[in-house]
Every structure is written in C-alpha cells, then in structure tokens.
C-alpha cells in the first residue's frame, strides 16, 4: 500500500459508490486528503490580472501598477497561495531536496499547459544544481515537453560602482539565452514556468531575455504566489 508523500499515512483509494458512478479512472494519489486540504487554491474570480495574486476583487495590484509605469506588462498566472502548507512543501522539496515531492503538483501544472505555447522552465545555477541534484521547476513539469532556453549567468565579481549605468543594468541580468535553443523559440509564444512568484523580478528578467531573442509573447505560470 502507498503512503502519503507528506505525512506518511497509508493511502486508501476512493471507491465510494458516488466515485464509481462518476466513471473517473482510479487516479493514483500521492497525498492524503488531510494534507491536500492544507493547500489553498487561488480563487480566479478575484485576482490581480497582471501577477495572478489573490485580491478582494479583480484588478491590478499596487506592485503591478509600478511595473506598468515602468512599461512592463508581463502577465502571470499562479495556482496556489504561498501559505504555511506551501512554505513547508517548498522547504522540503527544494531545500531539503526530497525530489519525489515533485509528483504532488505535476498534474496541476499539466492542466495549465497549452499546446500552442513552448514551455521554458526557469533555470537554476550550476552550483545549486550540483548541491540539490535537480531543477525543481523541471521536476514539477513531469513528462511535459520543454525547451531549456535559458542559462543562469555566472556571478560577476566586478564591483557595481566601476560600471556605467548601462553596464550596471546589463550586469543585473541573471539569465542569458542558450544559443542552441534559439531556433526552437524564435517567433514562438512561450509559457515561462517557475515554482514561485515572489517579487516578480526573476521571471521578468527571464521574459526579457526571451523577447530579446525573438520570442513573440511570453506568459508566466508559477505553482504559487
């Protein structure tokens, strides 16, 4: 018998009459109902239309208004709130490195994939890759096809003050394009996927690099916000 990936309790299958009558196939569960109920889905009827965060009603949040004033109209969608359960999940999955936890939300991510969009995951640095042993975003993608179009820049040791303004902005750019992947993304629309949207800076940096390299339109998808 399988056990819950989060609390280790033995998992039963839902074989109630109503379930059987619903003609759904018996989906293999990874997490028990109790653990699952601790995650909070974002209610899509009242979100920020730009970053996808939960709000009291539809609109544009203060942070996104600032982005708009800077001329950035990036649009992101998130599935879950970053509540205690999600914090705990991220901690165990990313920082402790329990790779099997990737299976918990693979189905949720898969449901958001659209055929017409090329999926690009946010990359992690080679040091993190070595330490963690996996890219947590690619883990969440499961068997979804994706293009590793981005790479994390090596950290520059140059002191910011020695650079002029243009160089400084360029130096802040944490990502660059993987030349080998350009043909797969040029003139395409891209779904950029990350595990979490915090300030939105990371995913926007990545979107900029993609646009600079011929991508037409970039949409964001994160597991949580």
């Amino acid at each position: 018998m399988d056990s819950c990936l989060l609390c280790n309790k033995t998992l039963g299958y839902d074989i109630s009459l109503s379930f059987l009558l619903s003609f759904k196939s018996l989906i293999k569960k990874n997490v028990c109902e109790e653990c699952l109920s601790r995650f909070e889905r974002i209610d899509k009827t009242r979100i920020c239309e730009a970053c996808g965060r939960q709000m009291d009603k539809m609109g544009i949040c203060n942070d996104c208004q600032k982005w708009h004033r800077l001329g950035d109209d990036f649009v992101n969608e998130s599935i879950f709130k970053y509540n205690d359960a999600m914090k705990d999940f991220m901690h165990r999955y990313k920082f402790v490195g329990d790779y099997q936890l990737r299976m918990i939300f693979q189905n949720e991510i898969r449901k958001k994939i659209r055929k017409e969009l090329v999926v690009v995951p946010i990359p992690i640095s080679s040091e993190t890759k070595k330490e963690r042993g996996f890219n947590q975003v690619i883990g969440l993608l499961g068997d979804v096809e994706y293009v590793s179009a981005l790479i994390v820049n090596k950290k520059h040791k140059t002191r910011q003050s020695t650079l002029n303004r243009k160089e400084r902005i360029h130096n802040q750019q944490v990502f660059s394009i993987d030349e080998k992947a350009i043909s797969k993304i040029v003139n395409q629309n891209v779904l950029l996927v990350d595990d979490i949207y915090t300030t939105g800076t990371t995913i926007r940096h990545a979107a900029t690099v993609l646009r600079q390299n011929g991508v037409q339109h970039v949409f964001g998808l994160t597991l949580c916000r």
Partner: peptide, 13 residues
C-alpha cells in the same frame, strides 16, 4: 535523481 544519482527519502528529515 537526474544524472544517475539517488537519495534516501526514508531518513530525509
């Protein structure tokens, strides 16, 4: 794990 690596999930905490 990717890259032919393995970890133990039983004692991971």
């Amino acid at each position: 794990l990717p890259n032919n690596n393995y970890y133990c999930p039983v004692c991971i905490n």
